[in-house]
């Protein structure tokens, strides 16, 4: 069975935020007003963390795209009281909105802060509302939501593969929206257990590291250090 994972090449990331915008559109992530965003209610399943290092003139900016880390030992799944947060047999962590009671324990448990709570009923400006993705449910107020590697895309790919009587290929057939949108090819997606995929090869590169690796969460999102 495939073990889907992502590799993010920090050397290639330009900080353009195409992944952020695509993710919002693909997953129908609600849009909040600037005032609410100021209050910390911004929802970005995929976000780019900008960091500025050093003093002038030796300044350098660094951009770190941050999807859900898709841990192999996910702290959010452990603490969920109703099994709304689940890990599939393939290792992908996803969240069942219809089950969520809104206790926000997963929000506290996640050391990466990738879970988002719907503080208000979701809203979109009119033209964005017309462009909502019909493949993905809209969440009600009062539940948590988060990145699940575009699980609906996996379902599509699986249906097509099943029509041909085979498994989903480890590379190319199923990619999350952010990976597809990245113009710099900084995001690489594939089966980490398949030695022939680029993702699994890069995950074993000496440049590879994972975020807060020492916590023991074993993320399936690898970063490649800047050279």
């Amino acid at each position: 069975m495939a073990r889907w994972g992502m590799v993010i090449d920090l050397d290639r990331c330009t900080g353009c935020q195409a992944c952020v915008v695509t993710c919002k559109a693909e997953n129908n992530v609600p849009v909040v007003t600037p005032r609410e965003a100021q209050r910390g209610r911004l929802m970005l399943w995929m976000t780019v963390i900008p960091e500025v290092e050093g003093e002038f003139p030796r300044v350098r900016a660094r951009f770190t795209p941050r999807p859900c880390m898709q841990c192999d030992h996910p702290p959010c799944v452990k603490v969920c009281p109703v099994q709304a947060m689940t890990k599939s047999p393939e290792g992908t962590v996803s969240h069942v909105f219809a089950r969520c009671i809104g206790c926000r324990f997963c929000v506290q448990a996640c050391p990466y802060g990738v879970t988002y709570f719907n503080w208000q009923a979701p809203t979109w400006p009119k033209d964005l509302r017309e462009a909502l993705n019909p493949d993905f449910a809209i969440r009600p107020t009062g539940v948590v939501e988060m990145c699940d590697f575009c699980h609906h895309r996996l379902q599509h790919a699986r249906e097509e593969a099943r029509a041909d009587g085979r498994e989903v290929r480890g590379e190319g057939e199923y990619v999350p929206a952010c990976v597809q949108a990245c113009p710099a090819r900084a995001l690489i997606f594939g089966d980490l257990d398949d030695p022939n995929t680029a993702a699994s090869n890069l995950a074993h590169s000496p440049r590879a590291f994972r975020m807060l690796e020492d916590l023991g969460t074993s993320p399936k999102v690898y970063y490649l250090k800047e050279g």
Binding site: V107, Y116, W119
Partner: peptide
């Protein structure tokens, strides 16, 4: 109106 009427936010969700 949902929990948005409180001062809770990200990251202080409790």
């Amino acid at each position: 109106y949902g929990l948005g009427v409180t001062g809770l936010n990200r990251p202080v969700a409790w």
